[in-house]
Design a protein around this nucleic acid. Structure first.
Lengths: 335, 335
DNA sequence: TAAACTTCCGAAATCGTTTTCGAACATAAA
DNA sequence: TTTATGTTCGAAAACGATTTCGGAAGTTTA
């Protein structure tokens, strides 16, 4: 392994000179710096990140916390897309990505301990149970953190605009003449709460009275539960003319039930998804849905986290909302 | 930050004693070891991984190389499932996962340099362009590597059994009476080559003569291209009775075309996918497909890599094939 | 010419571990 | 009693970088 020492011997200068030259300190003459850099290249020098971070207390390493209760986890395009985006943004700024988990071998660690042990400069928290004490410990620690789709008091959060999403969906569906709009919503999380609140609010604003019978719960990303909910809705005396699904993938479950009953989308019943995953736009008719900009969310999260790491004194927690876009597919019929 | 020194002062023993006690060396008396461990717990000691790996040259860190040309990358369930599995297997053995990329900040690095810089104890290589010189450099380096779905001479590889997959599909479809079987295959990769070879081979074995007009290429994970290929196939004078798709997701593209033409699956035409992603089993009728065991693949890859890292002297490169399972959905009609 | 700056470089301390080797002591064997 | 053996611990040297501080030139100013 080539170390600083090898270079210094090769160049006939000291250790410190080499280090400084390579790091672009300005108390090194141009000629020396040039000579050192060339030698480094020639010898194939690579800095040792362990040694470096031991001394500097920085690792250029970002943790990501990506666990979820339903364990659909990375299988969900919203998260895998976000991860890709976090990754490439971080890399462009010189940071690597490490997954934070709770158990490292036999040893059980809290998330905080793990992040600390790995020396993460910061952590992106997404798709977890935010009420978990371990998560809270991490957020309250000295390690810079940023959360996605959840707000804590003291750390920056990036939110997909669920208020806007549901508002746009509700308004659009209403504008197409629908008055009996059913909503199948996910389990009780802050995201679900926002979507529901926004739905109720928007309905109220446009003067649509709500029928509690049209509210059904079905866990996210679970087509079977959505199928069940769809059945219940279709069994109602006063059937909905439109069903909003918790996410695009879950919609497939509903779709099956609808088609089983010989109903046609959108002629007999209209449907709307949420997320705007690839699949939704491949289906025929294309699914009307709200596309969450998971890439933008990931990008901003990484950027803000890195800012916070590199300029801690300028840091002010903020809440950043990333709006998505209503994709008007062909699953909502004008009536 | 609590260091060894703090513990040693607290306990009134030396640095080395603390280190040895914490690492379970046996030249420390039970009483001392006990005392030290308690103090460590009480003070909230966490080892500094940078310092540790500086000294030991081990990081307990695994790199994963996950880039692909089509950049569907982690969005593909095959890979996201694999990653999850690699991650949890590695974690159980005390290893973390870091993504390896090529650019760290302004500095362009080769994959090898990156892995070396981060001190990865080993690297899992998947879903990349395996002919890339940078990948080859990494494989040929001193860093333990393991490849997925590609074989190099000197490193262990874990392969999804594409030969078996295509064989099972072909045999099954044949057994259902199909004689004009079209195959839409992915771009020219080693995976595609294997599937094609297996298809041709199986057909030959069962005495089915091949019609080159029934071979179409459409990039993986690209429903539009599959739709195109499907059109061409349906425009043939002698139409296929069954179409094999490169993957489940691409099938959706074909499905649209088929339904546009007023054909019904499986009554008018049979179809088969590949992968066995969640979606495929949600569709109605359920897609007949070959489920690749991406979790098993990830698990074995992580296990073997760790073995290689921890017992380098016992290491012998091997080729491990993970078979999947034919899922008999409802998209292949008996004729 | 002396004083005051600059510019460029190096010695050495330091980060927090692990590990080697020998010391000290106790115990067992001769 | 002497010798050999075992047990338990600590001093000190690494690992490979960064950084502080001061010294030696060379250059400018008074």
């Amino acid at each position: 392994m080539i170390t600083l020492k090898d270079i210094s011997e090769y160049c006939g200068v000291s250790n410190s000179t080499v280090s400084k030259a390579l790091n672009g300190q300005k108390d090194i003459s141009k000629e020396t710096a040039q000579k050192v850099r060339e030698a480094a290249r020639k010898l194939g020098y690579l800095p040792n990140s362990a040694a470096r971070s031991l001394k500097t207390n920085k690792t250029l390493n970002l943790g990501v916390l990506f666990v979820d209760k339903t364990s659909s986890g990375l299988r969900h395009e919203y998260f895998s897309g976000m991860l890709e985006s976090i990754k490439s943004t971080a890399e462009a700024k010189g940071y690597d990505i490490t997954f934070i988990s709770r158990n490292l071998g036999e040893r059980k660690m809290s998330f905080y301990e793990h992040a600390k042990y790995r020396g993460c400069d910061g952590v992106v928290i997404a798709s977890v149970d935010f009420t978990n004490p371990d998560v809270i410990e991490l957020v309250n620690s000295e390690i810079p953190t940023i959360t996605i789709d959840y707000v804590y008091n003291k750390c920056t959060s990036v939110l997909s605009d669920n208020l806007d999403g549901m508002k746009q969906i509700a308004e659009y569906v209403y504008s197409q003449g629908h008055r009996r709009i059913a909503i199948i919503h996910g389990e009780n999380t802050s995201v679900t709460q926002k979507r529901l609140a926004s739905f109720r609010n928007t309905c109220k604003k446009i003067g649509l009275e709500l029928d509690e019978a049209l509210f059904k719960e079905a866990r996210y990303h679970d087509p079977k539960l959505s199928a069940l909910a769809t059945k219940e809705l279709l069994d109602l005396d006063k059937k909905p003319t439109c069903i909003l699904y918790p996410d695009d993938f879950s919609f497939i479950g509903g779709k099956n039930v609808i088609e089983e009953r010989g109903l046609k989308i959108p002629d007999d019943i209209s449907v709307v998804g949420y997320d705007g995953v690839l699949l939704s736009q491949i289906l025929r008719p294309q699914l009307t849905t709200y596309k969450q900009d998971s890439e933008e969310i990931g990008k901003i999260a990484a950027q803000k986290l890195i800012e916070q790491i590199e300029e801690p004194t300028l840091y002010i927690p903020e809440i950043i909302t990333v709006t998505g876009k209503l994709l008007r597919g062909g699953t909502v019929e004008k009536i």
